[in-house]
Design a protein around this nucleic acid. Structure first.
Lengths: 189, 189
DNA sequence: CACCGGATGTTAGCGACTAACATTTCATGG
DNA sequence: CCATGAAATGTTAGTCGCTAACATCCGGTG
């Protein structure tokens, strides 16, 4: 879909309506039809802007950045440590613009199992990207997949926790803390 | 549903028909209707035996065992290490009866993203069970959730890899190898 | 103002899943 | 051996997510 003024306006209206409904009556209890009505459009139009219902809340544009950051770490480290440092480099200093809607979305995802399933699909892609990079540098495929899976699981857990954390806590802190637990025997970085 | 002779027969017929169809034409391309016809029943009856289409392949009866095994590890260990040892104790010597259908199922799950999403829902429950146990013994909730998530992600990755591994490889070997990567700086257990 | 491309609507349909009610099967006990 | 009652199955009708083909409308350009 080409991006025009109209496109952006409708997309924003859908997003607002969806977030409101999700927060008021829960994700599963909200129908695409209801969202469409609230946004003044047709269900069909909803799907022209978002491929699925959950895409309103779940978006993962980070894959290539993360894979690159992992690849940028010293290639002689073990896969787990390389992935860990890569994720720290890519996400360690994210400042999510203190955007409230980001937290609203994460909080919603944290509450609904069906949404977490959608997240895991996106995570799968990222995991694959990281593992491919590690294998390209000579890592064993299974070791690479395991390292990517473990580090991403820890990171995702931190992200979900951030959704319902007190407002002072930053996402960066939580991610650093999550990955620190996977560090080799008591190293601070 | 009460378990009678009939119940078991029908369930077995559904399972056979479903596995065959899934392997021949793929999971997503297979309809519950097709499964029902092949099993000589009605779609309605299918759902009386399996709550969802994916339940034919994805079942997780391990939660309590695993949580108990984690709780049985020394309480003074850090959460990650405690979880790791618990999983090793619970899964480290599984001998899946060399049952072929187990591998068939895992292989199918490994191929379809929608099925992996279903797995992640089951994993969520296990993760929660483990984390609860750790928190009950005084662990920090976030640390506990992260430890459980990372260890389970590694284990799940090993499980999926087993689905398409050469037939000599045992699931035990892969799980041990996966969790070994999360061990503190070069310890063999 | 006429035009044209992109955004929206309409209609029709598939597949997963559910509820309410009718029907058949099968293991009992008389 | 057969009647009986409960459990399993079928029927029907519906909701919701999602898709395709085609018609329509709106908005900016010339």
């Amino acid at each position: 879909m080409v991006v025009t003024t109209r496109t952006l306006r409708t997309r924003a209206r859908i997003l607002d309506a969806a977030l409101d409904l999700f927060e008021h009556q829960g994700y599963d209890a909200t129908t695409v039809n209801q969202i469409a009505v609230a946004a003044g459009i047709t269900p069909m139009t909803f799907f022209r802007h978002f491929p699925t219902k959950d895409a309103v809340l779940v978006t993962d544009p980070y894959d290539p950045l993360i894979a690159d950051a992992v690849g940028a770490q010293p290639a002689d480290l073990p896969p787990l440590e390389r992935t860990r440092l890569g994720l720290l480099a890519a996400l360690g200093d994210i400042t999510p613009t203190e955007d409230t809607t980001a937290r609203r979305r994460v909080a919603l995802v944290a509450q609904s199992p069906s949404l977490r399933a959608a997240v895991s699909v996106g995570t799968d892609a990222t995991q694959q990207a990281i593992a491919d990079r590690l294998v390209a540098d000579g890592a064993d495929p299974l070791d690479a997949a395991i390292a990517a899976a473990a580090c991403l699981a820890a990171t995702t857990t931190a992200l979900l926790a951030w959704g319902s954390a007190p407002s002072g806590v930053t996402l960066t802190d939580l991610v650093r803390r999550a990955l620190a637990q996977l560090a080799p025997a008591g190293a601070t970085p």
